[in-house]
Write a protein that binds this DNA or RNA. Structure first.
Length: 442
RNA sequence: GCCGACAUAGCUUAGUUGGUGGAGCGGUGGACUGUUAAUCCACAGGUCGCAGGUUCGAGUCCUGCUGUCGGCGCCA
C-alpha cells in the first residue's frame, strides 16, 4: 500500500527509463479516443502521463478516460525524458482508478475560479477552502509555512531554549479586556488566551530561556489583510536580558526564517511570484533601530498629524515604512501608550523599554516585545496607574515577589511573517482554515 | 465600533431609457493517433441573495433584511 515513487523525484532524474508506479490525483486531462493525457498531481509536483489505447486495452482506456479532475488514480509505466513542455512523462502500461469523482458532482474549483484566486480570495474559494487546499497556490503556501515554523523551532532549540506550553483557557486578559473570547466553563466564565506571555514569565525563573509556537485568540472585529481571530503566535521569554538583547533574538529568528526559505523553498516562492532578491535582502542585512521620538519627527516632517504620546497606528506605520527597504525596530515608546508589563526606562521614566518590528512593503508590525517590569514595587505601580485590577494577576505579581530578575521577551505573528516573506496579498492566504470575525467555516 | 462596495447557471461573468436572461469554464454525448488552459459539433443546467413596494410589466427603480468583500480603529 505504501507509496514508493514521488513525482518530485522523477523531475530530479531518479527514474529515467525505469518502470515505476505513481499514485496521485488527476490535475488536468486532454486527448482523443486513441491517446489520453493526464497531468497527475502528488504532493511533490505534476507530471504528464500518456495513456495509449493500444497499450492498455479498450476497457482500461475507457475507465481512465472517465477519471475526472481530482480523481485519485494509480498509474504504472516507464519514465521517459521528453523535449516537450514537462521534461518527463510517464508512458503508462497499467491504469487504475482508486477514488472516482461523480460526473453529477464534479470538482467545483475550475479554471475560472482559479483566475479569480490570483488576485485575492473569493467568497467561493473561502467556502470551499477544504478543496482549495489542493491547488498549487495553497500547496506552495503551506510548504512555505511549514519551513517557517521549522525555522523558528530550530532557531530557538539551537540556542538551548526550552519549548514550553501555556494553557489556552485562561481567567484574565494580557491587555485591554475587550478583545477576549469568552467561553462557558462549568458555570463559570473562562477566556481563550491572547498570549502565552504571562504564563511564560511564571516559568522564567525555572527555565530561563523558553519559547513556544501556539495559537492566540483575539475577538477583534478587524477586517484587514493583517488580522485573524485565531493566529499562530511564536513567543519567547528570557531571563537576565535587556530590551537590546531581546531584539537580537527577534532579528535572529526572522532572518533565520528568511534564509531557510531561500534554502528550502526557492521554487515554491518563485511559483508564488515572490521576488527572491527581497527575501535575500531580509536574510542578509541587520535590521536598523529607531527610537519612537525619531519616528514621530519623521512623520511630522511628512506633515502627518501626530502628537508625542500617541501610539503609531497602521496608517502612520505605513507612511513611516514606505521608505524602508528592511524591517526596522521601533523602540522606547511613551509609557502611556503601552500596557503595564513594559518596563519604564530607568534613564527616563517617560519611556518604556520595548520594541516593535515593522516589516517593509506595507506588511506592518510583525513583532512586539521588550523588557518586563520586574520588581514588585514597580509592577504594582504600573498596574494601579493603568487602573487594572490586581486580583487576576496575583500569580504574575508573585513572580516578582520571589526572586524577580530582569527579563524580557517578544511575540511574533507567524502568519504575518508567512504573508510578508511569501508576498501574499492577505494573511488568510497563509493559513489553511482562516478565522475572522465573519467566518468560522469550513 | 465606524466607513465604503457587491450579490445573475456548480464557477467567472454580460445584461442598454424597465418589455420573454446570454457567453466562457466545468459536466454529458459525439468527432479527432502527441495534446499543453487541446480543438470542433451538440445537449443539459437559472425562484437573477431574501422580503416588501412602485408599475400594465422589475435582473434592472425604491425600502428593509441577510450574506460576503474591501478599508479604518485595535494589535501579532
Amino acid at each position: 500500500m505504501a507509496k514508493d515513487f514521488w513525482i518530485g523525484e522523477v523531475h530530479q532524474g531518479k527514474y529515467d527509463d525505469q518502470e515505476i508506479e505513481l499514485k496521485g490525483w488527476v490535475h488536468r486531462t486532454r486527448g482523443s479516443n486513441k491517446i489520453w493525457f493526464i497531468v497527475l498531481r502528488d504532493s511533490t509536483g505534476l507530471i504528464q502521463c500518456v495513456i495509449k489505447k493500444t497499450v492498455v486495452g479498450d476497457e482500461s482506456f475507457n475507465l481512465i478516460k472517465g477519471a475526472l479532475i481530482e480523481s485519485s488514480i494509480i498509474l504504472k509505466g516507464t519514465i521517459k525524458s521528453t523535449e516537450r513542455e514537462h521534461g518527463y512523462e510517464l508512458q503508462v502500461t497499467n491504469a487504475k482508478v482508486v477514488g472516482p469523482v461523480n460526473p453529477d458532482n464534479p470538482f467545483p474549483i475550475t479554471e475560472s475560479a482559479m483566475l479569480e484566486a490570483e488576485g485575492g480570495e473569493s467568497e467561493f474559494l473561502l467556502d470551499n477552502r477544504h478543496l482549495y487546499l489542493r491547488t498549487s497556490r495553497m500547496t506552495n503556501m503551506l510548504k512555505v509555512r511549514s519551513t517557517i515554523f521549522g525555522a523558528i523551532h530550530s532557531y530557538f532549540r539551537n540556542q538551548d531554549f526550552i519549548e514550553y506550553q501555556a494553557p489556552n483557557f485562561v481567567a484574565g486578559a494580557v491587555e485591554g479586556g475587550s478583545t477576549l473570547f469568552e467561553v462557558p466553563y462549568f458555570g463559570k466564565k473562562a477566556y481563550l488566551t491572547q498570549s502565552w506571555q504571562l504564563y511564560a514569565e511564571a516559568a522564567m525563573p525555572a527555565l530561563e530561556r523558553l519559547y513556544t509556537i501556539a495559537p492566540s485568540f483575539r475577538a477583534e472585529k478587524s477586517r484587514t489583510r493583517r488580522h485573524l481571530t485565531e493566529f499562530w503566535h511564536a513567543e519567547m521569554e528570557i531571563a537576565w536580558a535587556s530590551n537590546d538583547e531581546v531584539m537580537k533574538y527577534g532579528e535572529g529568528v526572522v532572518r533565520t526564517a528568511a534564509s531557510k526559505l531561500l534554502e528550502e523553498r526557492e521554487s515554491e516562492l518563485n511559483e508564488l511570484g515572490r521576488d527572491l532578491s527581497l527575501v535575500e535582502r531580509y536574510a542578509d542585512n541587520p535590521y536598523p533601530r529607531m527610537r519612537y521620538d525619531e519616528a514621530v519627527e519623521i512623520l511630522q516632517s511628512k506633515n502627518v498629524e501626530i502628537e508625542w504620546g500617541q501610539d503609531l497606528d497602521y496608517s502612520k506605520e505605513k507612511i513611516l515604512t514606505a521608505d524602508f527597504d528592511l524591517p526596522h525596530f521601533l523602540t522606547h515608546y511613551p509609557r502611556i501608550a503601552k500596557p503595564f508589563y513594559h518596563r519604564p526606562d530607568p534613564s527616563d521614566q517617560k519611556y518604556v523599554l520595548c520594541h516593535d518590528l515593522l516589516a517593509p512593503e506595507g506588511y506592518g508590525e510583525i513583532i512586539g516585545g521588550g523588557e518586563r517590569t520586574w520588581s514588585e514595587e514597580e509592577i504594582l505601580e504600573r498596574i494601579d496607574e493603568e487602573g487594572t485590577p490586581r486580583e487576576p494577576y496575583e500569580f504574575y505579581i508573585d513572580t516578582r515577589r520571589y526572586g524577580g530578575v530582569p527579563h524580557g521577551g517578544f511575540g511574533l505573528g507567524v502568519d504575518r511573517i508567512c504573508a510578508w516573506l511569501a508576498g501574499a496579498d492577505h494573511i488568510r492566504e497563509t493559513i489553511p482554515f482562516p478565522r475572522d470575525s465573519r467566518r468560522v467555516t469550513p
